[in-house]
Design a protein around this nucleic acid. Structure first.
Lengths: 190, 190
DNA sequence: GCCGCTCATGACAGTGGCTGCCCTCGCGTA
DNA sequence: TACGCGAGGGCAGCCACTGTCATGAGCGGC
C-alpha cells in the first residue's frame, strides 16, 4: 500500500468518461473530474496534456497494433491488403469493447473539440500506417495514399457500425467499404 | 466615413497572419492581434469563434466552390470524376494565391491546434462533397467513400505541392494522386 | 538503522482564451 | 426629431493550463 491509491491515471480516465456522459464535456470542469478521482487538478495535467486527451489514452496502443499488423502481413500481400490487415486488427479491438467504445463515441460526437482531437488521432494513425508500409518497401506516394484510403474506410465503416442497425460486425463493414471504395475509385458509375 | 475604420474582420485576419508568422501562433496573444488591427479583444471574438478560426475564414467559400463543381459536373460523370472536378476547382483557388497559401500553411504546420482545426475543415469539406454527390443520386456509402477518397487525394497532393520541389502544378499532382490511388486500391503490388 | 535520492502528488499563483452583460454612439428611418 | 439598430468598447469573471516549490512514502546503499 503506497502513499496514494494506485492507478491515478485510470481513475482519472474513468471519472472523466463518467462525467462527460453525465453532464457533457463542456459542462465538466477538470476540477470535477479530479474531485471524483480523489486527486488535484494539477495531477490531471501531469497525466494528460489537456482536458481532451483523457479520452484518447488508447490511441498509442492502437497505432502500435496497426503498425504491427502491417509488418506481419505476408510478404506477397499488396499494400492495400497489408493496410486492410491493420484495419481488421483495429476492428477486433473495437468489437471486444463494444459498449465502452459506443459510450466514448457518443461523447466525442457531441463535441466539436473532441471531434477535432479524434481526427488528429486518425491522421496520426494514417501516418503510422504509411510508415509501416514504407518499411515494407512501398514507395512513399503509394504508402501515403494507401494509408489515407484505409483510414477513409475505417471512418466510414466505423460510422456505419456505431450508428447503423447493428446487424453486421465491424470487420464485415470494413470489407464492404473496401469493396465499395474499390468500385468508386475504379470509376464505376453511380 | 463611419464611426469606425471599415473591414474590421479583414484587418484582424491580416494582423493575425502577420503576427503568427512573426512570433508563432502560441506566442501571439489575441490582445496583440487586436492591438495591431486597432480593435479590442472583445471584438475579435465577435468575428471569430476562437483564436484558430481567424486563419480559416475562407473554408466556407471553398466548400461552396467544391459542392458547386460537383453539381456542375456532366450528368454522365462517375462519382469519382465529379469529385475530381471539385478538387480541380479547389486546386485552382490555391494556385491563384500560391504565396499566401504557403505562408498560411507554414503557420498551420507549426502548431498542433491549428493542424486539428485544418483537419476538421477538411472533414467538413468531405461532408459537403458527400452531400453534393448524394444530390446527384449517388448512394450514401459510395458518396461518403468517394468524398473521403477525394480528400485523401487532396491532402497528399497538397502536401507534395507545398513541400515538394515545386515543378508540377497542384492540378497535375491531383491527377497523379488519383491515378496512384486507383492503382493502390485496385490491389497493385508494391 | 539512518541517509539521501526518487518520484508521484499537493499547493498556489499567474497567464491567457473566451463569455456575459451592459454601455456608447453614428446612422438610417419613420 | 425621435427612435431603434448594429458595430464596437469596457469590464468582470470562469476555466484551461503552466511554472515553481513543497511534501513525504518507498528504497537502495552503507
Amino acid at each position: 500500500m503506497g502513499r496514494w491509491e494506485p492507478n491515478a491515471r485510470g481513475r482519472l480516465e474513468q471519472a472523466a468518461l463518467e462525467l462527460y456522459v453525465e453532464r457533457g464535456y463542456e459542462q465538466t470542469p477538470v476540477a470535477e473530474i479530479t474531485k471524483r478521482a480523489g486527486l488535484t487538478e494539477r495531477t490531471f495535467f501531469r497525466h494528460f496534456a489537456d482536458k481532451r486527451e483523457v479520452l484518447f489514452g488508447g490511441s498509442g496502443r492502437l497505432e502500435e497494433l496497426c503498425a504491427g499488423a502491417v509488418a506481419a502481413a505476408p510478404a506477397a500481400a499488396t499494400p492495400m491488403e497489408a493496410a486492410v490487415a491493420a484495419l481488421d486488427a483495429a476492428a477486433g479491438v473495437f468489437e471486444e469493447r463494444g459498449d465502452l467504445v459506443r459510450l466514448r463515441q457518443s461523447v466525442i460526437d457531441a463535441n466539436a473539440e473532441l471531434r477535432e482531437r479524434e481526427l488528429i488521432k486518425l491522421a496520426s494513425l494514417s501516418g503510422a500506417l504509411a510508415d509501416a508500409l514504407r518499411d515494407r518497401g512501398v514507395p512513399d506516394l503509394t504508402a501515403r495514399l494507401t494509408a489515407e484510403a484505409a483510414i477513409a474506410v475505417l471512418k466510414v465503416a466505423f460510422g456505419c457500425w456505431i450508428h447503423g442497425p447493428g446487424k453486421r460486425t465491424l470487420r464485415q463493414l470494413v470489407g464492404e467499404c473496401v469493396d465499395a471504395l474499390g468500385a468508386a475509385v475504379a470509376g464505376e458509375p453511380a
